[in-house]
Computed example of a mutant assay.
Amino acid sequence: MTGERESLLREARQGRLDTAAVLRLFDSLPAMAVADMTGIWRGEGLHSGHPLDGVLERFNWFGKEFRSPEEVFPLLFPDGAGRPVAVDPRFLPFDLALRLGLARSDLAARAFPVLRWLARTRRPSARLRMMEGRGVVTATMIYDHLPICDLFRRLDADSVMGLMDYRGFDRPFFFALRRHTPRALGGKAG
């Protein structure tokens, strides 16, 4: 990754860039192949003034797991022992919490461990495909039950930048993933 890209990524992590600047960074990155997404990835938000900035981190988001193109777990959160477990995103009321202003509340943070436990799953809730997004054909995660697609671009050999396109939001949400381990959880995801 070039020095300029590293600098922009650092600024996005610190919330110093607006959507247009983060989009320029995303658009400057090369495509990601579906086969290169296999594994468990640690996630972090990249802040651009989006309503979701910081929300996943508030609930201790771990990342994502890609077992195969047909078996994708888009939301991993740690269990009581710190092991990542899969959560079915359709059972997490992020939209409602954002509309009601609860997503950043202490009450929501205290209630989340119960919701996380209720929403645990062993079933994948997304798929990976090569699709065009922003003029580039790249690995794209398609949620099974939500109007969301995540486009991925390569930052380096072990990290990617993601752009979440969520129907109902007027701009994308950005995040980064760093490879956690090359192997899947082997059925321990839920």
Rank of each mutant, 00 (worst) to 15 (best):
N60W: 13
G135N: 10
R83C: 12
S48A: 12
Q14S: 10
G162P: 07
G80T: 09
V160F: 13
G39H: 12
C149E: 11
A109R: 05
L100Q: 14
R67C: 10
R16K: 15
L96M: 02
G186E: 15
A20Q: 07
A184R: 01
G101M: 08
D36W: 13
F26N: 02
S7A: 15
G43D: 04
A103Y: 07
R16D: 06
M164L: 07
A86M: 14
A35I: 04
S125V: 08
D170M: 12
M32E: 02
G54D: 03
L92N: 05
E4L: 04
R123I: 06
M131Y: 10
H50V: 04
E70A: 14
V160C: 01
E132T: 11
F175M: 05
A119G: 08
E65I: 02
M130R: 06
M164W: 03
R104T: 06
R179I: 01
L17D: 00
R10P: 00
M37W: 06
P113F: 15
M164Q: 08
Y166Q: 13
R123M: 11
A157R: 15
V114E: 06
A119D: 00
R110T: 06
A86D: 03
S7V: 05
A81F: 14
R154Y: 07
Y166P: 01
R5K: 03
P69W: 14
S125R: 10
G43H: 01
F112Y: 13
T138Q: 10
R122L: 14
P74V: 10
A176C: 11
E11I: 01
K188L: 12
D53S: 11
D18I: 06
M161I: 13
A139L: 07
R179N: 06
A81P: 02
E57V: 01
E57C: 00
G3S: 13
L52H: 09
R13Y: 11
F59T: 00
R24K: 12
S159N: 03
L163M: 07
A97C: 14
W61C: 04
H47G: 02
A157K: 12
R104W: 05
D36K: 01
A108Q: 10
P74T: 00
M141L: 14
H47V: 00
L46P: 03
R123A: 04
G101I: 13
S159R: 10
A108T: 09
F112D: 02
H145P: 03
M141K: 00
T2V: 02
V114N: 09
T19H: 07
L185G: 08
G168W: 11
E57N: 02
E70G: 09
D170N: 04
S105R: 05
H180L: 12
L8P: 00
R167L: 15
L96I: 02
T140R: 01
L92Q: 03
D158I: 09
V87P: 07
I148R: 04
S48G: 04
E6W: 11
I40D: 01
M1I: 04
V137T: 15
R120H: 08
N60L: 14
C149F: 10
V137K: 13
L29G: 11
K64T: 09
A33L: 11
R129D: 05
L8A: 09
L23P: 04
L9M: 09
L118Y: 12
F169W: 11
M37F: 11
L96W: 12
M141D: 01
A21P: 05
M32I: 00
D88P: 03
V22R: 00
P89Y: 13
L9V: 04
P84H: 13
G43I: 02
T140W: 07
Y143N: 05
V72L: 08
M164E: 06
L115V: 08
